[in-house]
Every structure is written in structure tokens, then in C-alpha cells.
Simulated scan of single mutants.
Amino acid sequence: MADHTSLVPVRASALMLGKPAPWPIYNEAGKLLLARGTLIDTPDQLAGLIENGLYRNAHWVAEPDTESVPLPQARDVLRRKHGGKKPAKPSAVKRGQESVITLDEVRWQIGDTLWLQFADDAAQRYAVSLVGCLPNRSILVTAPQKEGKQLFVRDGQAFVVRALSGRRAYAFAAQLLKYQQTPFVYLHLSLPREVRSTVIRQAMRVPVGAEGYLTLDGAQPLPASVIDLSLGGASLVATSLSGRVAAQKGVTGRLRFVAAVADQQLSVDLQVVLRTVEALGEADFHQYGVEFSGLSVRDRLVLSAYVYQEWSLQE
């Protein structure tokens, strides 16, 4: 039962037939009438709710009520994707910090984008996809294209291969060992002895446990789990956006959630820009990367306190 002193009236027009309830709905005494996410199926059901009185929690921002329906398995989906492993605590590094590592230390995945920069034409860079790696033999990537057409590259051609992953940029020198045309066009590149790694993003990201709502390009708000956070952006798990929005990285929107800082529930409503979308391959869930834009002094203070607190708890 909710604290009736925190309840505020809800307009009947806020509830629609065939649509899920956007909040838990209570009567005036604080008794739960309708859990969040429950569909209102019939006019009689809607009329009954109106007759009993429609109220919601005035402090509602990001689903704090334990009586309401939990967010739909978002964290469970992500946890299964990573084999149940707890994310590692990020290390404190400085932007611009460089190091030389081996290829085995680079955690690229099949399908990641690499950039081929021709050694004799540094102005030209072509995006390719990582196909695979043969230990002690070669790196396999798709063939570069220009204006939709495959570029023919001669054996022995020298490249600088570049990639971005997380907070780091990677670069190494390679040569084309073989231009392979079957069963599809791809390249065998020489294995590098070393890879240069440069920190390009200083903001420390920490795993968090906030629940909130993501709204992009005027679409309906999506219940979202905030899985990691920095002063510059966040990663979220939520159900899929419409194809129109999901296909347009760079669209703007809002992220709302409650940050629990020093026993205080502090609501934040942040302007965001969509940067990445990754399908999780289960139950139509996606992982979204958003960048914060135009943070107010108050938002920055709340985020700073929240990030530092969560980071400290992982010591």
C-alpha cells in the first residue's frame, strides 16, 4: 500500500484502452488498483477505475514502487548474455594515455568495425568488418568499398589499421597477405607484433542499478535499466524502439531515473543523444548507448555523487 500523503490525482485521459498503465494506479486510500504495465482491456474496467478514483505516486520518476510490475527482465537478459559474470570495475585512466599491447590483449568481437588507412594515402580510410583471426597466421576482414564497389587491393599493400572500442583507440601496421574472392571477397592481413592503444575517453563508467524511462524522438517512453553510467553518458537495456527511431543514431531524447545518493532519492531528467544500439538476441531487448547533452549544474552534481558512490561501493 502506498503512502497516501504522496498521492496525486491522475487525469482519466492519461489511461487509454489497449494501452499499458504508465504508473501503478491507487485509490485515495493508497490501495493498489492497477499495476504498472497492465493493459486496460474494456470500457467497464476503465470506468471502474475512474469510479474508485485515480491516483499515482507524486514522487514517481522511474518505477520505485515495489508493488508494481517489475521492468521486463532487462538485467536478466544482459546477465545471460555475459554468462552471469559481474562487470569488472573500471580502472582510472587519463585521456591521451598511450600504451603498447599485444593483439591478444585487444578484446575485439567478430563483426566489429575496423578502419583501413592506406599507408601511401593517409587521407583515405575505409570501414571494414572483422571476420576472424587465425592464430599466428592472419587477421580476416571484409574488403573495403568505395561508392558501393569493391576496391581491388594488391598483395603486399601496407595499411594502418584503426579501431575504437570502449574508451580506447587502437592502431597497428599490417600488410595484405591475400586478396580472397571466394566464397566472398575478404582480406588476409598480417598479424601485428604490437598494437598501440590510446585512451580517448576519460569519463569513468561504473555499473549502476537504476531503473528509468528512455524517450527518443517523441516516441512512447520505454522502461529502461541503466546498467552503467558516467558524467558523459550511459548504457541502458530496454525493449526495441520503432524501426524509424532505432535506425537513426543521433536522435535526441530524455532519460529519466532516480539516483539513490546518501539515502536520498534524487530524480534526474537528462537530455540525451542516441549513439549506439545493439540487439541482445533475446525477447526483443536492445542495449542502448546514450550521450548526455546540456547537463545543468544540479544534474552534474547529482551524477558526480552517484558515480563516485557506486564506484566506491565496488572497492
Rank of each mutant, 00 (worst) to 15 (best):
V185Q: 14
V185L: 15
V185S: 15
L187V: 11
H188S: 01
S190Q: 02
R193A: 09
R193S: 14
R193W: 09
E194P: 02
V195K: 08
R196H: 15
S197L: 02
V199W: 01
R201Q: 09
Q202E: 15
Q202C: 06
Q202P: 07
A203R: 04
V208H: 10
V208M: 12
V208R: 14
V208A: 09
A210N: 14
E211L: 12
Y213K: 15
D217A: 11
G218S: 05
A219N: 07
A219I: 03
L222D: 03
L222R: 08
L222H: 14
L222I: 06
P223C: 00
A224W: 10
A224R: 10
A224E: 12
S225N: 11
S225A: 15
V226K: 02
V226N: 03
D228C: 08
D228M: 09
L229C: 02
G232P: 00
G232W: 00
G233N: 07
G233I: 02
G233M: 05
S235T: 02
S235A: 07
S235K: 11
L236W: 00
V237S: 03
V237I: 14
A238L: 05
A238H: 14
T239V: 13
L241E: 13
L241P: 04
S242A: 09
S242C: 10
G243I: 13
G243A: 13
G243D: 11
R244Y: 07
R244T: 06
V245D: 04
A246R: 14
A246D: 05
A247K: 05
A247N: 06
Q248V: 09
Q248P: 04
K249Q: 03
G250D: 07
V251K: 08
T252E: 14
G253H: 07
G253N: 09
G253Q: 06
G253F: 08
R254M: 15
R256W: 04
R256I: 12
R256T: 14
V258M: 05
V261P: 04
V261M: 03
D263V: 04
D263T: 06
D263E: 15
D263N: 15
Q264N: 14
Q264P: 02
Q265N: 08
L266T: 10
L266S: 11
S267F: 04
V268H: 11
V268I: 08
D269S: 04
